[in-house]
Design a protein around this nucleic acid. Sequence first.
DNA 1: CGCGCTGGGTTGATGTGTCAACCCCATCCG
DNA 2: CGGATGGGGTTGACACATCAACCCAGCGCG
Lengths: 162, 162
Amino acid sequence: MADEPWLDDDEQKAWRSYLLMRRTLESHLERHLQREFGLSGSDFEILVNLSESETGRMRAFELGEATQWEKSRMSHHLSRMEKRGLIRKEACDSRYPEIALTEAGRAAIEACAPAHAGRVRELFVDVLGAERLETLGRAAQDVLAAIDDHKRSTCPPGVTGC
Amino acid sequence: MADEPWLDDDEQKAWRSYLLMRRTLESHLERHLQREFGLSGSDFEILVNLSESETGRMRAFELGEATQWEKSRMSHHLSRMEKRGLIRKEACDSRYPEIALTEAGRAAIEACAPAHAGRVRELFVDVLGAERLETLGRAAQDVLAAIDDHKRSTCPPGVTGC
DNA sequence: CGCGCTGGGTTGATGTGTCAACCCCATCCG
DNA sequence: CGGATGGGGTTGACACATCAACCCAGCGCG
């Protein structure tokens, strides 16, 4: 039964509910961020990471680890954000430039963070409740672990850049 | 406490785990679909809907209801898919054209559906198990309902196109 | 009749993500 | 020393999503 690839009706239903929620929640949150503050979800993610870093400056590489973005996506997006004045790339003693929050960037994240957190609470955290929230958190960890295994198994040991 | 917008540490952790899972799972599934079958997640979604429709043909509008896509996204994407020979837009008696699966389109969806379903089972359904899967399904419904309320309340009654 | 509104659908501009190729410097090793 | 390798980062081409503007047929109503 577990060898059978197909999903039965209940499984289908749960999976599709999840898919619908995922897309709806994402687009709802992103639309609000965009319309009220002119920030995309990607902008927000970068700004959150920078603003949590105490010094307000990180290497692009560190941001990549934190966000799990591909390096080219990072590069493109940072360029766009720099053009909009949200961040600055500054040369420093070490070889690679540092990405620094500008005043405008800090102002933007501080302006929108409470509203965003409030919506996450209202639409997700409080709706689920503590118990289901914790279940979901653990479930997410399990799924991540399974994906990790899957990657390892479909990409034979010793192969690099997979 | 529920008035407080900020998330406490446990809530943050659960929310971020969810976010990470969501992105990782999505990109993993999409990458496989793309590399093995040359289909994007969006292609897949359209093809699934068409192939489930018995006649293999639907109006763009119906596809829009089924997928919840914006109409312009639908239009753009259907044009691209037509160019690639996966679907065809055919005029019919009623005013609007029907979107029809081509042979190539049907072959593509039949080729990739089992592998995709298998991965959903392996990485999600079986990892969660029946109980957590059902919990998640209901949680998703609840979140969707909350979003619906939120839309209704932030968009005063009588306002159209919101 | 004529006028405007609505709603399905298209279009073009713009911002974004992905892939593959590339640049540059550091380091390793012959 | 000198070429190979690798990793951080950039670039260009392309696929994709979103927004706003538009087209056009049908309908309602003066």
